[in-house]
Amino acid sequence: MEIKTYLNTGYFDESGNYKREIYIDWAKAIASKLKQDKMTSASIRRFYGRVRALSTMFRDEETFQRNKHELQKLIPLVYYSLQRDQANVPESFKDFLEVNVRLAEQSLKDFKAFVDHFQSVVAFFPKEDQKGRN
């Protein structure tokens, strides 16, 4: 699966319903790719926490349109994280965020689909081995 193109047709099917893939198939594939590329649970959760915090700001379409620049700030943040070796943010995560922010900034409905999709990616993200635990 190519992260840069997997959402070319968006989050919704022809009827305007959420695609199943955003919750399961794509979410699993992306979580696996990010883990393979050495992203840590702490790094992905840090970005997910920022996205969830935006949910409280975007109460309706009007507040979303007025404040969507806050969503767009994720892009420079991920670029900054890429420049820091200790940030544990791979290029594939930058691609994931760029694709999703581009779609999510279109409307509140798209933003909510992004939040749900990102939540699924985090849910499928493999846990790190915990030393001393079975």
Rank of each mutant, 00 (worst) to 15 (best):
L71P: 02
K112E: 15
R133W: 04
Y23A: 14
K35S: 14
Q65Y: 08
Y6R: 05
R20K: 12
Y80D: 09
K112L: 13
S92F: 03
E70V: 06
R102N: 15
Y6P: 01
A87S: 15
L82K: 01
Q106M: 09
R133K: 13
H117Q: 11
E14Y: 04
I24C: 02
A31P: 05
H117G: 06
S32L: 11
D110I: 01
E21P: 03
M57N: 12
I30G: 05
F125D: 04
P76M: 01
M1S: 13
A42W: 06
D129K: 13
N134E: 14
V115T: 07
F125G: 05
V51D: 03
N8T: 12
K68D: 00
Y48E: 10
N134D: 14
N17G: 06
Y48G: 01
S32M: 11
L97C: 10
M39K: 03
M1Q: 07
E105W: 01
R52A: 09
R46N: 15
Q65G: 05
G16P: 01
M39T: 07
Q130I: 15
Q36Y: 14
L97H: 06
G132P: 06
D37N: 11
I30S: 05
S107F: 06
N67A: 08
L71K: 00
E62F: 09
L34A: 09
Y18E: 15
